[in-house]
C-alpha cells in the first residue's frame, strides 16, 4: 500500500551568475509522503520537472556532508530533513543555498573559503621529530584521553555550522566553528607536539570572536557541539598563554571584576579590558550613556557574603591568587 501523501509546495532559490541578473525563487508543487527527505524531493523536481536545477549531493545518508543548504532558513542536511515537520511548521518549504559562502549556481556554493579556514588550523598531527611515533607498535591512549575527542571526529565537514555562524558573517578574521572544533581535536590529542604553538597562533587568529551564540551547535547534524569545543579552547588558550588579546583580557578582567564585589563594576571593566586608552576611546559614547544612565559612574555596593565568593575563587581559581 502506498503511503499517504501531503501537498508539498516548494520555493527553490535559482541563480546562475553567468546568465541571471539576480536570483529568483521558483515554485514547484509536489505531493509526497511526509517522511520524504528534502533532498529526495529536490531530486524528483530535477528528474521530473526541471533538469536545470543544480545541487550537490552524494551519499543521501547524512555521511558525505555535501547536501547542506538552508531549509526554511535553517542550515541543514537536505538528506536528513523530512518534509512533513517543515510543512507542518511553515506550510511550505523554502530552499536556499548556504549562507556565508558565494553561490556558484542554484543551491551549490563555493566551498573554498570554508576549506581554506580549515587548512589555516593545520589539521594534521604535528609530531616531535625528537620523539617520532613508533612504527612497529600502535600508540596507546587512556580512555580519559580518548574521551576528550569523542565528538569532534563525527564531523562530516558539511559546513552547516559555517553557514549558521554570525561571526563568520560579520568578520572574515573568524575561522568558523568547524575549523576551531577541529583545532580542539588536535590540541587535546596526546600525540600532537604542537599544542602550545597551536593555541598561541589561534588567539590572534580569531578565537575570541566566537559569540557563544551556540547557533553552530544547533545547526550541526552530527552533535559535534562546536561552540562548546570553542569554549574548551578558550580555557586552554588562557592556560597556555594568559591574556594576550582583547578577548582573553576581557574574560580575565571580568573574572577579576566579579571577585572584588560579587557584582559587576561596569566602568572598571572597561578600564580593565582596554586600559586608560580604551576609556579615552570610549569617552564620547560614555558621555552619551552617562547622560541617560548616571549610575554607570557609581561603584556598585558589594554583595552580602562576598567572602564566600572570594573563598570559591581561592579554591577553584588558585593560580590567579598566587
Amino acid at each position: 500500500m502506498a503511503a499517504a501523501t501531503i501537498d508539498a509546495p516548494f520555493e527553490v532559490y535559482r541563480f546562475d551568475p553567468a546568465k541571471d541578473p539576480s536570483p529568483r525563487y521558483q515554485r514547484y508543487s509536489l505531493s509526497l509522503p511526509p517522511h520524504t527527505p528534502v533532498l529526495t524531493a529536490l531530486l524528483k523536481i530535477r528528474a521530473e520537472l526541471d533538469p536545470s536545477l543544480t545541487l550537490r549531493y552524494s551519499c543521501r545518508s547524512a555521511i558525505c556532508g555535501s547536501c547542506a543548504m538552508l531549509v526554511n532558513s535553517k542550515s541543514r542536511l537536505a538528506c536528513q530533513t523530512q518534509i512533513g515537520p517543515e510543512i507542518a511548521r511553515h506550510g511550505r518549504i523554502v530552499v536556499d543555498p548556504m549562507r556565508n559562502l558565494p553561490v556558484l549556481r542554484d543551491l551549490v556554493t563555493e566551498m573554498r573559503p570554508f576549506w581554506s579556514n580549515y587548512r589555516r588550523i593545520e589539521p594534521h598531527l604535528i609530531v616531535d621529530p625528537e620523539r617520532p611515533m613508533p612504527v612497529d607498535k600502535p600508540t596507546t591512549m587512556t580512555p580519559e584521553q580518548v574521551a576528550r575527542f569523542e565528538e569532534t571526529p563525527r564531523c562530516i565537514a558539511c559546513a552547516a555550522c559555517y553557514s549558521a555562524c554570525p561571526a563568520v558573517e560579520a568578520d572574515p578574521a573568524f575561522p568558523g566553528p568547524m575549523a576551531l572544533a577541529k583545532l580542539y581535536r588536535f590540541v587535546v590529542d596526546p600525540r600532537d607536539a604542537a599544542t602550545k604553538q597551536r593555541l598561541v597562533k589561534i588567539q590572534p587568529g580569531g578565537l575570541w570572536l566566537c559569540l557563544r551564540c551556540h547557533l553552530c551547535t544547533e545547526a550541526c547534524p552530527k552533535g559535534v557541539r562546536p561552540s562548546e569545543r570553542i569554549m574548551d579552547l578558550k580555557e586552554l588558550a588562557l592556560q597556555a598563554q594568559g591574556a594576550t588579546e582583547a578577548g582573553s583580557r576581557h574574560a580575565l578582567a571580568f573574572k577579576d571584576n566579579i571577585r572584588e564585589r560579587g557584582i559587576l563594576n561596569e566602568l572598571r571593566l572597561v578600564r580593565q579590558t582596554s586600559g586608560y586608552g580604551g576609556i579615552l576611546a570610549q569617552l564620547p559614547q560614555g558621555i552619551r550613556l552617562v547622560r541617560k544612565k548616571p549610575e554607570i559612574r557609581k561603584t556598585p555596593k558589594e554583595i552580602q557574603g562576598r567572602e564566600e565568593v572570594e573563598k570559591l575563587y581561592e579554591i577553584l581559581d588558585p593560580e590567579e591568587h598566587s
Binding site: R212, M231, K234, E235, L238, H250, A251, L252, F254, K255, I258, G262, I263, L264, I303, Q304, G305, R306, E308, V309, L312, Y313, L316, D317
Partner: peptide
C-alpha cells in the same frame, strides 16, 4: 547575597568556577 552569573565571560576563563 546573590552574585553575578559570570555573563559567559567567567565560563570562558574558568568553567568550573
Amino acid at each position: 547575597n546573590f552574585s553575578c552569573c559570570g555573563s559567559g565571560f567567567i565560563d570562558e576563563a574558568n568553567p568550573t568556577l
